[in-house]
Structures are given as structure tokens and as C-alpha cells.
Design a protein around this nucleic acid. Structure first.
Lengths: 107, 107
DNA sequence: TCACCATTTCGCAAAATTACGAAATATAAT
DNA sequence: ATTATATTTCGTAATTTTGCGAAATGGTGA
């Protein structure tokens, strides 16, 4: 009988990262934290996006869970930053995926 | 009063593409179609992944809807291929996103 | 016409996602 | 101790996603 194989770890990893980036609010967060590698608080972000504070908090939680960001407590605030290590890893995964089709249209 | 702005088109675009890639089956499909830029049919894919035919069909439909792949009818089969134009566009969006944090750790 | 093949659509169920406001938490300042 | 500030957690509702098997579709070949 034919053996059905599970998805590869790489496929699951890419899907996990993509899922973390699959909402505009989370893309906004990542953009904000990656541009100039600047950290900031939830309160600084909330003014720029059309969602409630509690909803933003949930998105931050998901990105944290996915390992793409991390929060440092700086009472009374929490400063969020990119998790550089994992972000670079994510970059590697995606570069790899996109490079498969690299040779298209090279004569 | 403070004006809340909508998410940018760029943020929405990235989120849409990420969503399309947020399931291992869809990552598998994209990998399969992009490696060597080879097209193939649903029937050729189904043997390699642990989901039902109808479920695979749904994933193909979503990728098609997202514009990342396209299907050419070749009776009695349907040959799926990457939509190179949109895939290259996706690559651009993501490269851009990842490049924001490029200068991290440059001394 | 009838059977066959590859694939999709349908109908449905279970689970996950997104969203909000209210309430809770934790810390700092008065 | 009380108040103020920043943020999260809770409870809940609406919507979307994922999955399957059964049935439908569109085309070929006998």
C-alpha cells in the first residue's frame, strides 16, 4: 500500500511563519518593529491602526507565540522588539522558497 | 479627534499572500510548482500529502484565488503552474519586508 | 450510449480566528 | 491608601477555515 507521508518540518515552519503574517495588523507590527530595528509599546502602535487595544494585544500575543517578536517589561510599559534570531531564520526560509523559481526567464 | 487610518494596501497585500501560504499543504503545492518551475496535476500531488482529494482541491482553489497559481485544462487533466508574474511580485513584497531589518548587527 | 477518468462542488461538522468592551492586573505617583 | 497609566485577560459572538465523503461535472474512449 502507498505510504502517505506527513508534511515536512520545513513546510510546517513556513506555514507557521506565514500564518503569523497573515493579518494586516500583524504585518503592521512587524514593519514597525523592523524598520530601523525600533522597538515600541502597544500604546505607541494603537494610534495608527483601526482596531481595539485588546485586539492589538491578541495580535502581539500571537506574534510572540510564533517567536517573531518579544516583549521586555519597562514599567509601566512593555517594549516590544523583533526577535532578530527568529526573524532572520524566517527570512532564510522565505528566501529559499522564493529562490526555487529564480531561474525562470533566464535565457 | 485623532484619525484612525486603515491598513495600507501594502500591508493588506502581504497579509493576503501570507495567508495563502499559511497552510503546509499550500506550501507543499508552491514548492512543488516552483522547484524547476515544473507544472503538475492534482493527481500527481495527492500521493505525497496526507489529505483527501477534495481538500487538496480546495487548497488549489485558494491559491488560484490568491493569484499565486493557475490551472490549464489538458483533458482529462488540469495542469497547475505557478503564476510567475504574481509569484515574483510576492517575492518582491517579502524581500522588502525582510530587508527592513537588514542592517541589524552590521558594525 | 455507456463506462471511465480526473477533478471539483456540495453539504456538513469541528475547530480556529477575529473582534469588541468590560474587568482584571501590575506598577508608579500622589 | 487611592488614583492614574499601560496593558492583558475574560467572556462572548460572528465569521472563516479545514476537513471529509458523496455526488456532480466534463471530457475520452469503447
Amino acid at each position: 500500500m502507498k505510504q502517505k507521508v506527513d508534511f515536512s518540518d520545513k513546510q510546517k515552519q513556513i506555514a507557521r511563519i506565514a500564518k503569523a503574517l497573515s493579518h494586516p495588523a500583524r504585518v503592521y507590527i512587524i514593519e514597525r518593529l523592523s524598520i530601523l530595528n525600533s522597538c515600541c509599546t502597544s500604546g505607541e502602535m494603537i494610534g495608527d491602526i483601526p482596531i481595539a487595544r485588546s485586539t492589538l494585544s491578541q495580535h502581539l500575543k500571537e506574534l510572540k507565540y510564533a517567536g517573531l517578536i518579544q516583549g521586555e517589561v519597562e514599567p509601566p510599559k512593555i517594549k516590544y522588539c523583533l526577535n532578530q534570531e527568529n526573524w532572520q531564520l524566517a527570512k532564510k526560509y522565505f528566501s529559499n522558497l522564493f529562490d526555487n523559481s529564480e531561474n525562470y526567464e533566464k535565457k
